[in-house]
């Protein structure tokens, strides 16, 4: 086992990771570097001449009212993540032990998640139809004379998207919670019962703290996943009406492929990266400090 052995090991190692590394280099690393460069240029698809413009794109972004609108919309969109997690926790607890037909019910709750988000978004688009759709038909029938305009008005559109997203994510969060609940020791729950704890107390004081690592994981990964999503929003509202559902990731897409402002779009995409970086840092810190039994 001399130097030649080590060298041979290294070559072998590269042989194994080489094919994958090549693809990662071509489709991740080089584009990322290129995008970083584009951030400082005035590149548009229409004008192939690239000029270096320094921090102009970043200055433009920080002065762009639409950028702040997109940030606000993103925050409202991300509110759906904790709501979906909380609902999923309750559903998972209910479906863990205390019902009949467990498997069937679990499958039903999980169903939205395996369908293509874009396809179901179109179904919701019709359900939300403001004048004659079934949801507002129902609301009128129970006496609400002026139900919301859902996707069609600027003050309700983002919340309508939230409802779709909560519905879509619920099943996934539930499945992960169900897996976590299997780790909660049965004896602990029985002991609480014997000590006279009410079900709600057991849930709050024992189960909820015990699954806190899962909650934290779901929260961070859910936030990161959601902030990157724009498919369902692009499909049903294209960011409208006005710019009321233009979230950050959609704003980037629009700048790049609707207005072909690719230098500017690159700058905003790196702002998105910074937010994701912050979430990831939170995850690292949280894993060390916040999550414990």
């Amino acid at each position: 086992m001399g130097k030649s052995w080590l060298k041979r090991q290294s070559l072998l190692g590269y042989a194994f990771i080489g094919p994958n590394m090549l693809g990662v280099l071509l489709f991740f690393i080089l584009p990322a570097i290129y995008s970083f460069y584009l951030m400082f240029t005035d590149y548009t698809f229409m004008n192939p001449e690239i000029h270096f413009v320094g921090f102009a794109n970043i200055q433009r972004m920080l002065g762009d009212e639409l950028f702040y609108t997109a940030l606000r919309n993103t925050v409202v969109f991300l509110l759906s993540v904790p709501v979906s997690i909380l609902l999923a926790f309750l559903v998972a607890v209910a479906l863990n032990k205390s019902v009949y037909w467990k498997k069937t019910l679990r499958a039903l709750y999980f169903m939205p998640y395996i369908t293509s988000g874009v396809a179901v978004a179109f179904v919701w688009m019709l359900l939300f139809q403001p004048t004659s759709g079934p949801i507002n038909g129902f609301l009128r029938s129970i006496g609400i004379a002026h139900p919301p305009g859902w996707l069609s008005t600027t003050d309700s559109s983002m919340f309508a998207i939230d409802i779709i997203w909560i519905w879509f994510m619920l099943g996934y969060n539930m499945i992960i919670y169900l897996a976590a609940l299997q780790e909660v020791p049965e004896e602990l729950l029985e002991a609480a019962k014997i000590d006279g704890a009410r079900p709600w107390q057991t849930l709050r004081r024992i189960v909820w703290p015990l699954v806190s690592p899962t909650t934290f994981l779901l929260l961070i990964t859910g936030l990161i996943m959601s902030i990157k999503t724009f498919g369902i929003i692009q499909a049903v509202t294209q960011g409208g009406p006005g710019s009321s559902t233009t979230v950050l990731s959609l704003f980037i897409y629009q700048n790049a492929f609707r207005y072909y402002e690719m230098g500017y779009a690159s700058a905003i995409s790196w702002a998105l990266f910074v937010i994701i970086l912050a979430f990831t840092a939170l995850q690292w810190i949280g894993q060390k400090r916040w999550v414990h039994y």
Binding site: S249, S269, F273
Partner: peptide, 11 residues
């Protein structure tokens, strides 16, 4: 950590 939005334009 790099979001797809960063990669769309260069790709």
């Amino acid at each position: 950590m790099v979001p797809p939005q960063v990669l769309f334009v260069p790709k």
